[in-house]
Amino acid sequence: MAKKDMIVNAIENGTVIDRIPASKSLMIVRLLGLEDDETCSVAIAVRVKSNKIGLKDVLKIQGRNLSPDEVAALGLIAPGVTLVTVRDYEVVSKTEVEIPNEVEGILRCINPTCATNFREPVVPSFQITTKKPLLLRCNFCDRVMLEENVLAQFI
C-alpha cells in the first residue's frame, strides 16, 4: 500500500500486527489487554484490502512491545499474522507468528473445577497437543480445550 493510501499513520516505536484475518483484530485487542492499557495508543484498521489474504485487519500499537507469552497466545488465535517491531520509525524485526508448542498465562482453563481457577498463586499453562485441529491440554488438570474454547475467551 502506498503511503498516501494509509488509513493510519506509521508509528514511531512499538508493534504492528499485520495480516490479521478480517474482524479478528478486536479479539487481539482483548487478548493483549489493550483496552485498559493506558501506556500505549492503538490504531485499528478493519477490513483493509490485502493482495495475499483478501481482507485483513491491522493493529498498530504505539509504545508497546509484546512479551513472548503474548506472542504465543497470538499464535493460537491468529496464526500466520505478521508481527513487526518498530523503533524510530524503522522496522527492526518482522516475523510470521506460528502456533506455539506451549502457552503460559493469558488463557484460563475451561474446567470449572481446575485448581487454577481458584485463588492459587499459579499461572495456568497449556501444552498444544495438536495444531490442526487445534487442541490444548491443561498442564494442571489435563482438560482438553478446542480452538473454539480459546477464541471464546476473547469475544
Binding site: T113, C114, A115, E120, F140, C141
Partner: peptide, 9 residues
Amino acid sequence: HFLEGSGVV
C-alpha cells in the same frame, strides 16, 4: 482434594 489440578498446584 476435590479439584483437578490440585496435585500439581
